[in-house]
């Protein structure tokens, strides 16, 4: 492809201001010497100018207000979602820490309570597992009830 043909292909982009510095220099040097390309570039310019002058359509004020209201509600919902997630992570971490911490305590005091409650209460690990399971079950039920209640409130809002 000759220099002339290469520059010819760049002329539309030159009018669009979409050339690199090197390409711009190449075009500028060529059109100084080539009348045909100079005329071609002149033909592209009014199209580019008219495109830049096209009026901008304006969104209605109703659209802006409605968009803002919906986006604000969404943003608030997202913030609440993030907060709830952080709370759940905190509570679950705390529950695990408490469970692990209660393990040696339970192990330490169970012989004393066992002797008070009777000779059959020697199964430390079964008691501990039951205690843990009950705690988690209660926590799970509470979380489900809260979620159901929140969803109901969200639908009403």
């Amino acid at each position: 492809m000759s220099e002339h043909d290469k520059v010819r292909e760049l002329l539309a982009l030159a009018a669009a201001g979409a050339l690199t510095a090197a390409e711009e220099k190449q075009v500028a040097e060529h059109v100084r010497l080539c009348v045909s390309c100079s005329n071609e570039l002149d033909a592209w310019r009014p199209i580019a100018t008219e495109l830049r002058r096209l009026p901008t359509p304006q969104p209605s004020s109703w659209l802006l207000q409605a968009t803002l209201a919906r986006a604000e509600a969404k943003l608030a919902g997202e913030a609440e979602h993030v907060w709830n997630r952080q709370v759940v992570i905190f509570v679950v971490t705390l529950a695990w820490l408490q469970t692990i911490a209660s393990w040696p305590v339970f192990d330490f005091v169970s012989p004393y309570f066992g002797s008070l409650l009777g000779p059959q209460f020697g199964h430390t690990w079964i008691g501990f597992a039951a205690f843990t399971a009950l705690g988690w079950l209660a926590g799970g039920v509470a979380a489900v009830m809260l979620a159901v209640r929140q969803r109901g409130a969200g639908r009403l809002a």
Binding site: T56, P57, Q58, L63, L64, T67, L68, E72, L75, A76
Partner: peptide, 20 residues
């Protein structure tokens, strides 16, 4: 950070360009 005023300002800033 959840600032609702920032949302309003961004919508105002981009309204014409985005709609067009």
């Amino acid at each position: 950070r959840g600032d609702l005023n920032a949302l309003s300002e961004l919508i105002a800033r981009y309204q014409n360009r985005l709609y067009r």
